[in-house]
Write a protein that binds this DNA or RNA. Sequence first.
DNA 1: AGAAAGTTCACCCAAGCAGTATACTTTAGG
DNA 2: CCTAAAGTATACTGCTTGGGTGAACTTTCT
Lengths: 164, 164
Amino acid sequence: MRLNQATDYAFRAVLHLAQLPPGEVVEAQVIAGRECIPIRFLLKILRLLTKAGIVNSHRGVGGGYALARSPEKITLLDVLTAVEGPVRINRCLVDPEFCSRQGPPHCAVHNALRAIQTTLIQQFQSYNFAQLAGRTSSRPAGEKLKSGEPATGSAITGPEPVNA
Amino acid sequence: MRLNQATDYAFRAVLHLAQLPPGEVVEAQVIAGRECIPIRFLLKILRLLTKAGIVNSHRGVGGGYALARSPEKITLLDVLTAVEGPVRINRCLVDPEFCSRQGPPHCAVHNALRAIQTTLIQQFQSYNFAQLAGRTSSRPAGEKLKSGEPATGSAITGPEPVNA
DNA sequence: AGAAAGTTCACCCAAGCAGTATACTTTAGG
DNA sequence: CCTAAAGTATACTGCTTGGGTGAACTTTCT
């Protein structure tokens, strides 16, 4: 139930690019150095992001990487699926082959898991990198937002850790 | 980003017990047979559930397993953490050792992940096995609930799959 | 031409997942 | 009290994934 290290690195690499002036190209070396990511591994991750159309790569001497579109059009979900593939909480949900309960169309547990997965995905989708790049750390706390708040952003605010 | 097979089996084993008359003891063999779970593997999982106080085991000839408390007091989260340990979406969130961004108290990405993890946990907590055992499959669809709805149940309803 | 960037492909080691094996303890019943 | 039917304990195995490295290549600027 956890996302892997490459995804975490990818988040921070994209965040790094999002904090730069738009269109700015920066070498992988610089990102690796500033974010403490092993360079070879970062390059591998950046290739995934390139293939997914999230960043553009520039080869040759003054080369490097830049965001392929504006940060508010890039969500955590975009980066997550670029690195790990589609989110699936349970293999059963996507591949009925694996479900040992063939009887009912889907058992109660799987309906629940499907619902959980759906909101999880929506959550990842609700964060974009313009938001994240905005305030470097802890949100202003006074943050009031009309509970309709559409379009680009507005994640459910869940500030304090709940357990463990 | 997925939960493992043992957890899925555990969910269905507990659901099986929840669908029986309260206090009924049933052998692992039977659960394994009906839910198509490899018996040895199921026994291993049942030991985890026993240690966590979710089921009680009865040894000897007429032995078997039964729920240790009433089904509405057992949530998906209980079973999940019994099998997999505490939910942590990102090792960074729990073990600052691993965070390469020591600079700010926590970077924007991690604040977002923390919030996502919190709602994820709440989601798993919002399903109990009395609910799940009740309607075998698809919820009644007309399901209206006051958006305050406390205590035992009431998950956020997220009916249709969102992508992939 | 050559240095500085990214690309490709292939490899490696460790950990976790899914499941199995063996030997044991407890309990009911004859 | 012996035995069979249940669960318990510990350890092992094969496989996949995660996390990362190596070496040789291509592109581009100067």
